[in-house]
Each structure stands twice: as C-alpha cells, then as structure tokens.
Design a protein around this nucleic acid. Structure first.
Lengths: 181, 181
DNA sequence: AATGCCATGTAACCGGTTACATGATTTA
DNA sequence: TAAATCATGTAACCGGTTACATGGCATT
C-alpha cells in the first residue's frame, strides 16, 4: 500500500504523464521506492477511478498519446492521512545474509567473489549519492523542503556506508577462514 | 526464490517439523528472513515433491501428527548452487523515507511521533542483538561457523545502529523546522 | 513502405499475507 | 466431555515481476 502514495507525492511535486513518472522512478524517488511502468500505469488507472487524481484536460486521451495527471484534493488528503499514520518498520529481509548462514553449513565456496562484487556495487552507489549531495545540497541549504530531502539522502549515504564497511569486514574474515570451509 | 533455501539451511542445521521451523523463523534465521507457518508448510510440500527433502520415516504421517524432515543430497547440492550463484542486491525500499518525501510536500504534521516510535523499536532490537552477542559470542570465539554467524549478527547490530543514529538526527532536524511544515 | 522508438497498456505468474479449517492431544 | 491448544494444512487476495501487445510518430 505504498506505491499509490509514492505516485501521489511525485505528482504533487510535478504533474506528469506515465512515462515521465517512470523516468523519475528510475532516479530520485526510485532510490528508495522503485516501480516499473506497468505498475505505474495500473496504479494511475486506479487512482483516477477513485477520484484521487485526474488527467489534465489539455490533450485528448488516446492510445499512444501522452496523458498528464494532477492530484485532486481527495488525493492530497489521502496522502496526508497515510503519511501521519503509524506504521511498523518492515523486518529485515536480505539474501546475502541468508547465503552467509547457508555457507556456515555447506561451506563458503564461491561466495567470496560475490561479496567483492556487492562491495563494488555499494561503493558505486555511495559515490553516486555523494555526488548528488555535493551538487544539490551545498553547505548551508535552508528551506524545510531541502532539509527533508537532504535527510533522506543522508539515510541512503549512511546505509551504503554501512554496507561497504560491513562487506570489507566480511572479506577480511573470509581471508582468515580455514580453507574451503 | 529464497524461502526454499532458507528452509534447506534450517533443516541442515537440524532436521525439524513444520512447527519447529516456524518457531525458529521467529528467532535466528527469522531475524533476516521471516516466514509464516503457511509459507513454510507450502514450501515443505514443494521441496518434498521435488525430492530435495524427505519426511523422516520414524512416524506415520497424518493430519495433526508431527512430521519431521531432513535434507537429501539433491537438496544440499541445490543449496550449494544457490549460495555460490551471483545475485544482485535488492534496491532499497523503505516507507519511512517515502513518508519523509511526502512530508516535504504536504507538511510533517503527525510524522514526528512515529519517528520517535521507530527509534524506540530500533533501540529495542539493537539491545536484543547486543544481548545475543554477549551471550553467544564471547571474545575469542573460534570455529568457522561461529565466525560466520557472528558476522551475520554484526550486520544486524550495525544496521540497527545506523537506524537509531539516523532517527535521532532526523528528530533533531524536526525540532529545528519551521512550525507545522 | 519499412524500421524503430515513444507511450500506454494487458495478461500471466509468483511469493508473501490474511483468514479460515481440521485433526490430534492435553487440561479442566 | 468440553474447552483449549498443538500441528498441519487450504483458499483468497495483493503487490511486484516478466513477457507481450498496440497505436502513434519520426527517420530512412
């Protein structure tokens, strides 16, 4: 029950067509809530049927024609409700940790290479976040919006920092392990 | 495609019935791969049909009778294959960050309380992990199994540490924000 | 006219979630 | 013997994933 609210947020930031939303879900919002174009079109249909958004009247709608949407008051209200509502954090769910647990039983053969690969990926993501921070949040940014966006980015940076540190630590342990096991 | 491998790992650690597995998925393995009893029974059925596990021949099977399972060689082979196979990390997906992004557009009203609640929950989880570390991994633990299990636990501890720090930082920012927005 | 890309969709599947059902065993 | 609990399941749903379809537009 989060995709509709992700879309409402994106449309409030800027009214968009399905494809534009899809592009934006490959960046910014997509960094912590990804979605494919199929999901997005399906959800846009639902939100319109429920009266939370509407197609901008400018253009005639047809297959292969751009349709832009904007948020209606009911949509804004629903987003406010959802944002303020108490929600439990989702329990951790991570296959890499699961594979380590399996390796403790059947041996670590083949795992080390993928740990190194993950380290690289996380380092790359961390560098990308840091570049965004440098570009979009120079020291002394001010508005409430900026501060909140920066806070979100900080979570991404700190998370990737955790992973890179932990993976380096894991690789050290591996180097130290009795061979093959 | 991870639940079957979580179950294979658990069964290799110790042959178990469905209910015993369910209990163990509330602790240990469940800390990073949770599962309900419905999932577990469905998956046990599949794994048995596919010849990766078998019911221990000791007892007659009947509804309401315990059935214990053990892993067959084919199951162990599949777990080895899966563990060594290269897998991409899943992109981050977090509703709390999404709610912050929404709050940047519609205002932060009501969010602060839930941030405080999340902070408490993460502090509690962190304390639980630390207690496990104190109990199960006294300084100078040695076997490869222990080192791997400790490594996994460390990931949990570091992740919860990240969340508690970040949430405290977020609450400071909130205290500093122009009122109501 | 054919090719390829842009834009919007439909359909089938799959794993996780929630609600409910049923048989066996223990306890009041 | 009724109620509670243990143990194993079935069924319906829901969101995310993958594969495929279709109409319009631009280029060659």
């Amino acid at each position: 029950m989060s995709l509709p609210h992700a879309i409402l947020t994106a449309l409030l930031e800027k009214p968009s067509s399905g494809l534009e939303l899809t592009r934006r879900f490959d960046r910014s919002i997509g960094y912590f809530w990804s979605a494919t174009h199929q999901q997005i079109y399906r959800e846009l249909g639902r939100l319109e049927r429920e009266g939370l958004i509407r197609a901008l009247p400018s253009e005639q709608p047809a297959r292969g024609q751009r349709k832009s949407y904007e948020v209606l008051p009911a949509g804004r209200a629903e987003l406010s409700r959802w944002t303020a509502a108490s929600q439990d954090p989702k329990p951790l769910r991570d296959t890499l940790l699961l594979r380590l647990r399996a390796a403790a039983v059947i041996g670590t053969a083949g795992l080390e290479d993928d740990l190194r690969r993950h380290l690289q990926l996380h380092e790359r993501q961390l560098a990308e976040y840091r570049e965004i921070e440098r570009r979009d949040f120079p020291p002394g940014s001010d508005s409430a919006q900026d501060r909140l966006h920066h806070l979100i980015l900080r979570a991404g940076i700190d998370l990737e920092t955790f992973w890179t540190r932990w993976l380096r630590h894991a690789l050290e342990e591996f180097a130290d392990l009795p061979d093959g096991s």
